[in-house]
Write a protein that binds this DNA or RNA. Structure first.
Length: 194
DNA sequence: GACCAGATTGTCT
DNA sequence: GACAATCTGGTCA
């Protein structure tokens, strides 16, 4: 299946975050293919969004957020975890969509190996967990989603019920409803609002 | 199931 | 030197 075109990401960040729900994130790594349906996302905008890494302008870490839409932004957090983002914003702006949870499709045994966990339900239900399950690290920072091993493709055409909620784990900008989830999905991150 | 503390490091001030 | 877009494992129930 074909990757989503770059034009999909070259728009306002919020609708991209919402429309990424139900799409499939796929990683073709050496040992096989790992994929899952995106069931939870968050939008982080540019210099007008105090919760965003891009709020204070370009730094060494957040530079991908200012670069081409359709690229990957992966950062290391809390000394333990990577978080996977897709760069998405209109021309000359900044922004990215944090992928917070997946529903596993393919390569579940590989996920279990990378996570060192036999349970299926907790493999990818959180931003730090899914990067581990898909074996994503800062080496993948800056990759493009339209060529190569990492891609996002069209998923099922089923209409999901989508709910918008406040974002998780931030101290500012909490009044914005920039977190999007597929209502009732079993693989949402382990957090209050379902 | 709810609540809490500890891990651990890159990035920015 | 502070702290972060988190997870895990402990305790108590």
């Amino acid at each position: 299946m074909a990757s989503l075109p770059l034009s999909f990401y070259a728009r306002n960040t919020v609708p991209v975050a919402r429309e990424l729900l139900g799409k499939i994130l796929q990683h073709d790594c050496n040992n096989g293919t790992i994929s899952g349906t995106i069931v939870e996302t968050e939008a982080y905008l540019g210099t007008e969004d105090p919760a965003s890494h891009a709020f204070k302008g370009v730094t060494r870490r957040n530079r991908p957020m200012f670069e081409e839409p359709g690229h990957v932004y992966i950062y290391f957090i809390y000394g333990n975890h990577y978080c996977f983002n897709v760069v998405a914003h209109p021309p000359d702006q900044a922004g990215a969509v944090l992928i917070r949870a997946l529903e596993p499709i393919e390569g579940i045994e590989l996920m279990q190996k990378y996570r060192r966990l036999s349970d299926k339900k907790n493999l990818t239900n959180g931003p730090g967990k899914l990067t581990r399950a898909l074996n994503l690290t800062k080496e993948h920072n800056g990759l493009t989603l339209t060529n190569g091993q990492l891609k996002i493709i069209e998923g099922s055409t089923v209409q999901y019920k989508i709910i918008a909620t406040p974002r998780i784990g931030i101290k500012q900008g909490t009044e914005k409803l920039f977190r999007f989830i597929i209502a009732g999905n079993r693989y949402l991150s382990n957090n209050r609002i379902h």
